[in-house]
Design a protein around this nucleic acid. Sequence first.
RNA 1: GCGAGAAUGGCGGAAUUGGUAGACGCGCUAGACUUAGGAUCUAGUACCGAGAGGUGUCGGGGUUCGAGUCCCCGUUUUCGCACCA
Length: 821
Amino acid sequence: MRYPFAEIEPKWRKFWDNNKIHQTDLSKTDDKLYTLVMFIYPSGAKLHCGHWYNYAPTDTWARYKKLNGYNVFEPMGYDAFGLPAENYAIKTGIHPYDSTMTNINDIRAQLKSIGCMYDWDAELMTCKPEYYKWNQWLFLQLYKKGLAYRKNAPVNWCPSCNTVLANEQVQSDGSCERCGSIVIQKALTQWFFKITDYVEELLSGLDTITWPEKTKLMQRNWIGKSIGTEVKFKVDGSGEDITVFTTRPDTLFGVTYVVLAPEHTLVDKLTTGEFKDSVAKYKEEIKSLSEIERTSTVKEKTGVPTGAVAINPVNGEKVPIWTADYVLSTYGTGCVMAVPGHDERDFQFAKKFNLPIRKVILKAGTNENDELTEAFTESGTMVNSGSFTGMFSEEGIDKISLYLEENNLGKRKTNYRLRDWLISRQRYWGTPIPIIHCPDCGEVPVEEDNLPVELPYDVEFKPSGDSPLSSNEKFINAKCPKCGADAKRDPDTMDTFVDSSWYYFRYLNPRFSEDIFDKSRTDKWVPVDMYVGGAEHATMHLLYARFIHKFLRDLGYTASDEPFKHLVHQGTITNQGAKMSKSKGNVVNPDDFTINYGADVFRLYLMFMGPYELGGDWSDKGISGTDRFVQRSYELFNKFSGLGKDVKAKSEYEIAPLSAVEKSIYRKVNQTIRKFDEEVEHFRFNTAIAGMMELINELKNLDQCSKEIQVYTLERFAVLLAPVAPHLAEECWQILGNDTSLFQKPVWFTVDEKALIADSINIAVQVNGKLRDTVEAATDSDQAVVKELVMQNEKVTKYLDGKQIVKEIFVKNKIYNIVVR
RNA sequence: GCGAGAAUGGCGGAAUUGGUAGACGCGCUAGACUUAGGAUCUAGUACCGAGAGGUGUCGGGGUUCGAGUCCCCGUUUUCGCACCA
């Protein structure tokens, strides 16, 4: 009989539901384990295989922990604010709230069909005022500490749609995805969170958490700490100074020009008469370029002179000031000193515009008068550098910095690539920013008692050039909390990364109304023990959450320094080479598989496909393999139905008295448990399942075992099934004769260590590193014993004839290698 | 462009610290069973070769008794790059 998943799976889900098996008692904290997957964005595309790939294997890990006695908390919620719902509204007229709620209801039903251990009492929706109220509260706390502030920042602007565009709405050729016009960069006043105040701790904290090394490295690179010196260049004939940042003050004598970012405020100020037109024209030209294009090292460098001249502080030399787009206003001071002899970008630029190139660092083994054919960017001996000539770069960096500091011409400075977090969005579907702009008092925060500032339902979200909220008179007009005068609310909303930077606290008490969360509870449960989600969040969400966590700690809201102790990234599931998305039309609907095979077969297949961290291109080719495995498992238990009622197995057996078949099965069962423990613990589900398949292949001889060994084996097999195929396992456990639920009364079997050691073992025999045969020897045999076997082996000895043995390498239980000449 | 991964049969993938390459599964081949089925069971399946044997882990070098694994050079490919989440 085929496994009737269509009856059995809903039956067990109902049982779990009715008995509240997945509701975590959060007051019990002794063996607490907080397992979290990144919450879902409720798009109209619903759940696809990529979501299942994220959730089902993580649930297997969580269930494994639960069976091992942990009090596991595994919640799920909706990251419900965001751009796609708003775009959808612009296109169709369907309100973001309505489409989001519809999507959530559909997705919830789908999520329930996976059979994960989600505690639905903890469900969260970030678009509800009871949630985003605390985003606003968080904003106010940051504001109070001076960590939320406004400044100008460039945004992608479509002049035809009259709106700000997300990077993803700008196509690769720089045009708007909606109308095709060329997108420009426009400066707008924006809200920022001062994440840079925490930069050192964000770096050092990485050493304290168990995250993939590559993710930590990405964060380190993102933060981009660099130790250097700021150098002041006076502008000739003007009171202005240009401050540049350099990590190579030892090359200061090689400066032949200075470059300002085109957006730098000094550009217009310094440009002299005849150059004004060309500079203005240049600034116009580069408006449509993205940062990636601007910094590309293959793109032809562009730039124009400003006519102004800077004075090198160490030698008084006058050098021209240029503006060029390879200098970014967002990094360092927005100005660089150009040393074409020792910087690749400067070299290219100087070549193109015929600017002088001067050698000031000598590469070891070369001559001072050799012409530079490319920039020499490493350290070396300083030349042409006044009194510093002859020093090695490291010493020169130190001495020149000291000289600059002593003469008030500069100072040592640590720079970071990390920029403050731009959190304002000129959009509707997000958390309103709780600030009122008063003509007299300026920016005034909304009183905490007046939170939430509710997002109004009625609004014109079609682009008009302004944030959609500014068109809602009722919303936008307010009284100044300080002086009572007529004032305007801030029309912007927050980046959705604000929502996701603290949601793991809120899951623990989603309806708590007195504070952002109940500290007495979160202190026991936070940090999250295991966090699973896509690697695409490596630098943004995962950095923002760490920042907010540290901020909340400084407010006294948590004792921990880091939000996520352990992090795992699932791989990306692509289809026809592309990430699954509705717009590409390559979404694979998991429902097709759950209808045909059931949830357990599908989740088994997702785990069996390959390494969890790797992902891969979607194919359903192998699903019949896991289906067969499920069928065979079900059949196996039916064959021994009820056996566990009459026969009780011991927890361990003496091995010697067992028959050969029993021995082999007993050993395999224990080896499989050992392997399963090891593999599932580290999210290696594919090999864990392969191990179980090996076991069931061996169990074709189970009827040759005593009833006790049969029960011993089957109860262990059922329990191994439980994390990977929970519905099936519950059913099998019951068929065997148990009247309890595995997840209601968790069971896990420990390995019988003495069953793991095999009596004998195959040892590879090599001659000159080439395999010639294997010999079977008792486990842990020493070299002399193995040598005797080897030397009797003709397949080996025929390669030794007439040769001289030079060396013999013996590795116990593994290899015997004879080197001959 | 910059940064970070990956590359093993026809396919998905296994392979503690360097120690028998191809576990497990798909597919395929042959057979069994059968009021015939896209079901189940048994056997085989890296490549070349009749065999002995030889060759094989993206390409090219290197270290080592021994390299899929370590080092150098290159190719291809996936992901991220600050307003998608």
